[in-house]
Design a protein around this nucleic acid. Sequence first.
DNA 1: CATGGGATTGACT
DNA 2: GTCAATCCCATGC
Length: 190
Amino acid sequence: MKPAFYGRPVLEVARDLIGCVVVHDGCSGVIVETEAYHDSEPACHAYVGLTERTRVLFGPPGRAYVYRSYGIHACLNAVCEPAGVGAAVLIRALEPLEGLELMRERRGLERVEDLCSGPGKLTQALGIELVDNGCELARGPVVISGKPRRWRDVPVAASRRIGITKAAELEWRFCAVGSRCLSRPALSRV
DNA sequence: CATGGGATTGACT
DNA sequence: GTCAATCCCATGC
């Protein structure tokens, strides 16, 4: 998708990204779970303002923001809103599309539902790492492209974001209803 | 320069 | 259900 797609309110983009396709290094998958983050709320990395780490978040829309989580996993975001605003959509889960065998190799697992059903899992399955931070999502190496036909009007449910302690009440998580590849069920009874 | 805290996952009780 | 692994980065001395 082009930068103009991302240069909109982050909540709109987070919902609209459900059904789009992430492609990297021989593998691809349909986005079925996202979360929105915005510099106005404390769960967002950009809440602290402009630093070396958040430079990409405050930059132009349509780039990848990749950070290391818990010292182990890489997590993929799409930078949103106009430059100067620190906002991004965390890609939390995919339904695997192409490169299934390569994903199984990278993950050391067989079941399709286990390959990309979490933010750290999908980056491992697709081979996305910190070196991809800042890349343009319309050009690569990490690419996000438009929705296959059957994903064009999929119902989307909103709920609370997962694994955060600050601003936990906001319902800024979006899921494709009925997908079997979510990190957790769409209707979380937290 | 030292320290502490995660937008997680998988293994184990 | 509980818990450790592990490292980047923001903060504070």
